[in-house]
């Protein structure tokens, strides 16, 4: 089995989406990532839940975790108001989001090869290299495929 057989597409969002809408979409659908596309349809960023959550949380608490203990629910409204006002496009322009950092893998990579790349990069998903609509392989799909392959070889049902 090869990576291409496990690949799926992810939701595409325009640059004009607000940070909080993106946050909500990811949370409500348990997504591992969303793809941000520009006006010309080009992929401008691949945003994971960590990326989007980082944009909602106050930068000072991420820079200094000692301050995280001072945050409580009273800060939430202010944080989400800022997230409502900012778009993912603005975050891309500021360099807070992008396509870099997402591991790419060849479509004909074996499942074990794909698993090696994901573990080495601590990645929950990898992108298939190539043009066109971006397609991704999730770690959960890789685990399922590995188990299925092992069971198949052992003749288990």
């Amino acid at each position: 089995m090869h990576a291409v057989e496990l690949a799926v597409e992810l939701p595409l969002l325009p640059r004009s989406s607000s940070i909080s809408d993106t946050f909500r979409l990811i949370a409500e659908h348990d997504l591992l990532a969303v793809v941000i596309i520009g006006d010309d349809g080009r992929v401008e960023a691949i945003a994971s839940p960590v990326d989007i959550t980082r944009l909602v949380l106050p930068g000072y608490a991420l820079a200094d975790l000692s301050l995280a203990g001072l945050l409580d629910d009273s800060s939430l409204e202010e944080l989400f108001t800022e997230a409502d006002a900012r778009t993912v496009g603005a975050a891309i322009d500021a360099g807070d989001l992008g396509v870099r950092g997402v591991v790419e893998i060849d479509a004909d990579a074996t499942v074990l090869e794909t698993a090696c790349h994901m573990v080495a990069n601590k990645a929950q998903l990898v992108r298939l290299s190539g043009d066109g609509t971006p397609r991704f392989v999730f770690l959960s799909a890789v685990l399922d495929a590995l188990l299925a392959a092992r069971d198949g070889r052992a003749g288990r049902p």
Binding site: P58, G59, Y60, A61, A63, D64, L67, L70, E78
Partner: peptide, 13 residues
């Protein structure tokens, strides 16, 4: 500066 800046941002917010 890296120590005082985050707490400053929190207090100013």
């Amino acid at each position: 500066v890296l120590l005082i800046a985050p707490v400053t941002l929190l207090v100013c917010q």
